[in-house]
Nucleic acid binder design. Structure first.
Length: 284
DNA sequence: TGTGGGGTGCATCTTACTCC
DNA sequence: GGAGTAAGATGCACCCCACA
């Protein structure tokens, strides 16, 4: 059972039109769609019986189903997927919307977490519903760069940058005073030694590292482990409370909002373009 | 619980087209 | 031109649900 796009059967233009009408009507009314309604609205010039025959074929192919013998047809998950991928078409995002999204991404600092929160907010607003955005998930974060900046005599700011644009900061309190030149030397050494390594790799190097180098490397590994455990793959959301608070929320409304979110693929494409332009983030 | 409305499935008929 | 075939229309029996 496969469809046109590599999944199998090819639907005739008439079957595609009937399927599209069933999906649109069901989304609008939340009621099973009768062959009579389709026959009247399709403009195909065929009788309800002919529509019924086509509906029966669509049901055989798994695009439609019906709750009971005398009920109209409702789309299946496969029917929705076919509608979204083949029949709905791709809406052109208005220029004003594209400019707004672009402007918003230039307003936030280049940080993955900020981008994810902004992406969720934009999708929720555009789709007038709830949105969930998952950060790209990779097996483990990798070290890119660190800076050690002297704040006061014994206070040092550790700035850790991971591949993918994540930035973490931590203030270190040392036992004895130090100066920026020495901190820069240590940072350069660690940048050379740790480049591209995972937290686990860095842990493996710790026995061979002594003194302050080893302490900083250990802190780096800990920060990366914490990030891997809690933040990679985190789901950011927006608009969920607003949707759940709607008293008239129903199945049909839910389906309509799902379709709006799917239509938001256009918006999502723009968001991903902005993230890529902003630099260096691998969007999965 | 009976009844009416809405809807489907199926058998049958009609029509158009193709092939010999 | 006649037979075969496919597509579409029609009619009827049946099912489900809402309502009094």
């Amino acid at each position: 059972m496969q469809s046109q796009q590599g999944q199998g059967e090819t639907l005739t233009p008439r079957q595609q039109k009937i399927l599209a009408l069933v999906v649109r009507n069901y989304v609008e009314t939340a009621q099973p769609v009768s062959s009579k309604v389709v026959a009247e609205q399709s403009g195909l010039g065929v009788s309800p019986a002919t529509v019924r025959n086509e509906m029966a074929r669509l049901e055989e192919l798994g695009y439609l189903t019906h709750p009971h013998t005398s009920a109209g047809r409702v789309p299946t998950e496969r029917g929705y997927r076919y509608f979204v991928q083949q029949l709905m078409g791709r809406a052109q995002l208005p220029l004003s919307e594209r400019r707004t999204i672009s402007h918003q991404f230039h307003q936030v600092r280049p940080d993955l977490e900020q981008w994810m929160r902004l992406a969720a907010a934009i999708l929720a607003r555009a789709g007038r519903g709830a949105s969930l955005v998952a950060a790209p998930k990779s097996p483990a974060s990798r070290f890119k760069h660190l800076e050690l900046i002297s704040l006061r005599e014994t206070h040092v700011l550790l700035v850790l940058v991971l591949l993918g644009g994540v930035v973490r900061q931590q203030v270190l309190v040392l036992n004895q005073p130090t100066d920026q030149a020495w901190l820069s030397t240590v940072a350069n050494r660690l940048n050379d030694a740790l480049k591209g390594l995972t937290a686990q790799d860095i842990r493996g190097l710790l026995p061979g590292m002594e003194g302050f180098d080893g302490q900083v490397a250990s802190l780096v590994a800990t920060a990366m482990e914490r990030y891997d455990a809690h933040e990679m793959g985190q789901v950011y959301h927006a608009g969920v409370e607003e949707v759940l608070a709607q008293p008239e929320f129903s199945d049909a409304e839910g389906i309509r909002q799902v379709l709006q979110i799917l239509e938001g693929q256009t918006i999502l494409s723009q968001i991903l373009d902005e993230v890529r332009r902003a630099g260096g983030v691998q969007v999965l």
